[in-house]
Simulated scan of single mutants.
Amino acid sequence: MKISVDIDCTPEEARTFLGLPDVKPMQEAMMTQIQERMTTSLMAMEPEAMLKTWLPAGVQGMEQLQKMFWAQFASASRRTGE
């Protein structure tokens, strides 16, 4: 025997019915704080400084990262036998 029940309610109503806390105000506060920090950090940095921070060794760093990924893929494929 199979019984199905369809309940038509909003997420807020379901959360209240199940006794779960409303975390929306906390999420909004955290997202606002994160957005403010990111905006402040990005405004303080110049594009060139930002690239140097993200890519410390420039093109050489990207090449080293690519070599590392390929080495990891190769070792993983040898372990799985593919």
Rank of each mutant, 00 (worst) to 15 (best):
M1Y: 11
M1Q: 14
K2S: 11
S4D: 10
C9D: 04
T10V: 01
T10Y: 05
P11R: 00
E12I: 02
A14H: 00
R15G: 02
F17W: 10
L18V: 08
L18W: 02
G19A: 05
G19S: 09
L20P: 09
L20V: 02
P21C: 11
P21Q: 09
P21G: 06
D22S: 08
V23M: 14
V23H: 04
K24R: 15
P25H: 03
M26L: 15
A29I: 09
A29R: 13
M30N: 09
M31G: 04
T32K: 15
T32Y: 04
I34F: 00
Q35A: 11
M38D: 07
M38W: 00
M38G: 02
T39D: 05
T40H: 06
L42Y: 09
M43I: 09
M43E: 07
A44Y: 00
A44D: 07
M45D: 10
E46K: 15
P47M: 00
E48K: 05
E48M: 05
A49S: 13
A49V: 02
M50I: 12
L51S: 11
K52H: 07
K52R: 10
T53G: 01
W54G: 13
P56R: 09
P56C: 09
P56N: 11
P56D: 14
A57K: 07
G58C: 00
G58W: 01
V59Y: 09
V59T: 07
Q60F: 01
Q60Y: 04
G61M: 04
E63K: 06
L65C: 05
Q66G: 06
K67A: 15
K67Y: 03
M68Q: 15
M68P: 09
A71K: 11
A71T: 15
A71C: 10
F73D: 13
A74F: 10
S75V: 12
A76T: 14
A76D: 14
A76N: 14
A76K: 14
S77W: 12
S77K: 15
R78D: 10
R78K: 12
R78G: 07
R79E: 15
R79C: 13
R79A: 15
T80E: 08
T80C: 02
T80D: 14
G81K: 13
E82T: 15
E82D: 10
